[in-house]
Amino acid sequence: MDFFHKIIELFSTPKYMESIWEGLKTTLIISVLAALIGLLLGTLLAIVAIAKDSKWTKLPKLICKIYITVIRGTPMALQLFIMAYVIFAIRGFPQIVTATIAFGLNSSAYVAENIRAGILSVDIGQTEAGRALGLPGRTTMLKIVIPQAIKNVIPAIGNELIALIKETSIVSMIGMYDLTMAAKIIGSGNNMASYIVPMTVVALFYLGIVYLLTFGIKLIEKRLRASDKR
C-alpha cells in the first residue's frame, strides 16, 4: 500500500522528523505559555466578574464583560490575524510572542467563564456559614468557596486546554512553524508532494498530546475526589 509506504518514508527520513520535532516544539511552547496566561488572567477576570456591585467595581466589571463577550464572540483565527498584522505589526517582533499572547488572551476569556461558573456552583450556604462565623469575605472565599469551586472547575478547564492545544494549529496561518505547518511542509511539492500522509501523522501527534493531558487531568480529578470520601 502506497499509504503505509509513505508513512514509513516519513518516519525514516531525518529531514521530515526534524520538521515534526520543530513543529512539536512550537506547538508545545505556545500551548503551555498560552495556558499559563489564560489561567492567570482568566482567574483575575473571574474575580472581577463575581465581585460585588459597587461604584469601584462598576467600570472594571463592564470592561471585563465586554472583553469576554468580544473574545468569545469572534473567531480565534481573526483574533490571531489582528494580533499579528495590526497590534504587533512591529519589525522583527517574535511571532511566538504574538501567538502566545493571542492564544493566552483567547483562553483567558473561556477560563474566566469556567471559573465564574465554578464559583457560582458552590452553594451560597457555604458562604453564609463562613460569614456567619465572623470570617471576612476574603477568607471565606479563599478557604471555603475556592477550594470547592476548583473541583467543579477542573474538568471544564481541562476541556479548555484541550481546545487550546488543537486550536494552535491555525498559527501556520501567520507562517509559524508548528505541527500543522510541519505537515504542510512535509506534504509540499518539493518533499512528499501529498498532504494526506503527513496530515494523518501529525493528527496522531495531536492526539497523543491531548491524550497525555486528559490523563493528567483525570489524575488531578481523582486526587481531588479522594478528599471527598475519606
Binding site: 526534524e18 520538521s19 522583527g92 507562517g175 504542510k184 518539493n190 518533499n191
Partner: peptide
C-alpha cells in the same frame, strides 16, 4: 537593528522558496 533586511516569502513555491527541514 538597521542592518537587517527582512524579506517575506511563502515557502511553498519550490524551487524559488521551500522549506528543507526547518
Amino acid at each position: 537593528n538597521e542592518e537587517t533586511i527582512i524579506v517575506q516569502t511563502n515557502a511553498f513555491f519550490a524551487p524559488f522558496e521551500y522549506y528543507d527541514g526547518t
